[in-house]
Nucleic acid binder design. Structure first.
Lengths: 260, 260
DNA sequence: CGCAAGTGTTGCGCTTGACGAAACAGAGTT
DNA sequence: AACTCTGTTTCGTCAAGCGCAACACTTGCG
């Protein structure tokens, strides 16, 4: 029974709520914006944008920055986020292991799940080398060009695989762009139990990922370590792969995998 | 220029947006709820509640649980939260220091600010001993019964203090329940430059906190270390106090405190 | 197994909430 | 000082959002 989202997606949702939430998404993307900028993004009158912002502000989902009339996301989001993250069992179970892996490798550790034809990043822990790293949490990332994506796809059978994939856009000269190449790669991932992506999503980015399994052995998430290619070179990848596979196995055990 | 929130708070905001955001707050509080429950909470017709939920679902701010027609907060909140936390200057500046303090003490480190008569927890880093720690981020926590709360109150003058406090509920036999006791305690906090709370919010919970100051020397946040009382006994509290005071001073320096 | 109760979902007509236009206030620039 | 641009407020209009009624589905009980 999924008609609620379908109705909303089809434009039959509540227009002013849709607009207000679009403001939140604009602010998430731009950092901060003024009323006129928001009205331009939404295609509404600035008095409309102003009233919508006022309502969001009264719920503390946006707040004004020091500058006159400029807005950014507010701390009210944190209360909602706290409620959300605390309930994601997977993230909760994985957090201490993610932290250990980040400490061991010094790089950025992520947990991602398959969602709507992409990898949705649920958690991120940065290692000591990874100051100011890009925040992936909440983002939908292409499957075919990332180690997390390959791991998540490797848990699918052929029918589900084709359903999960749309086009295979090219991001760098090393991006996999044909289905047959991707199938071969996924066979390798299944064989070796992990995935590696070097310069496939963006040049200079290396990531390794391993599957997180549930009690039945299904791939329910992927755990990755990523960093710049100059730090994660060939000489270190083997070691990081081993650490990642072990950490993901540990998370899997906590979810009931391998228990008999 | 704060008229936006005032307008919203006065009920002149956008009613349907106000309702939709109230749904998010209900779900944050209850965990999950059905359409009829939400319509009861909001005092609207269930078809109204259903349409509002549909719009929230289309933006992935709510999602259906496995049960028929029951909803909870969705992962779309995480994207907004990621954007929020990364941009809170204080959290950003404090994060590496929080991490170090968590590593040094092995316990849970929090950053909190004063907000609406309570301590609002903005950030949390768990140390190696702190498995399965409670997630405080986004929550409003009582001031009089926590070390963070005492630190935040210690930065107020008498008028602001009374304005900030409501009743002083009893949580344990050690909770401070009279204003004069609290004033004495806040004098001690000002004198010694830190606060300690043992078994005051809940039995078995010990926390120490130190003030984070801005360039003017005002207390703008509080940084705390907390853990179970069996690990944070009298023998360790002095050491952890010293580490916390030093870490909070480091954050204060980053915010411009003490620079001449 | 059939029925009742309760919940979720949909369509429709009405009304009122949300909208854009116009105007004003303030800040920055020339 | 004048102009430009932004944020903010007020007001009349109308279409979006509302409640109502009905239907579909699930669950529990006799």
């Amino acid at each position: 029974m999924r008609n609620a989202a379908e109705a909303g997606a089809g434009g039959a949702g509540v227009q002013s709520v849709d607009r207000a939430l679009s403001i939140l998404e604009v602010l998430a993307r731009t950092g901060e914006a003024g009323v006129t900028e928001i009205s331009g993004e939404l295609g509404v009158h600035k008095s409309t944008a102003f009233r919508l912002m006022a309502t969001l502000e009264s719920h503390r989902l946006v707040e004004q920055t020091g500058d006159r009339g400029r807005y950014r996301l507010g701390v009210g989001i944190l209360r909602l986020a706290g409620a959300t993250t605390a309930r994601l069992d997977l993230v909760q179970e994985a957090r201490p292991i993610s932290r250990q892996l980040a400490a061991d490798t010094g790089e950025t550790v992520n947990i991602a799940v398959l969602s709507d034809g992409s990898a949705l990043y649920l958690d991120q822990v940065a290692g000591s080398s990874a100051l100011q790293s890009h925040n992936w949490v909440g983002q939908h990332i292409p499957l075919h060009a990332t180690s997390n994506g390959k791991v998540l796809l490797s848990g699918l059978d052929d029918d589900d695989l084709e359903a999960a994939l749309g086009a295979l856009p090219t991001y760098t000269s090393r991006t996999i762009t044909t289905l047959s190449q991707l199938r071969d790669e996924l066979d390798r991932v299944r064989d070796q139990g992990y995935a590696v992506a070097v310069d496939e999503l963006e040049v200079g980015l290396t990531a390794v990922a391993a599957p997180v399994r549930n009690a039945h052995g299904d791939v329910v998430a992927s755990m990755s370590v990523s960093g710049p290619s100059f730090r994660l070179g060939d000489d270190r990848v083997d070691e990081v792969v081993a650490q990642t596979v072990e950490a993901a196995a540990e998370v899997s055990h906590r979810l009931g995998w391998g228990h008999r």
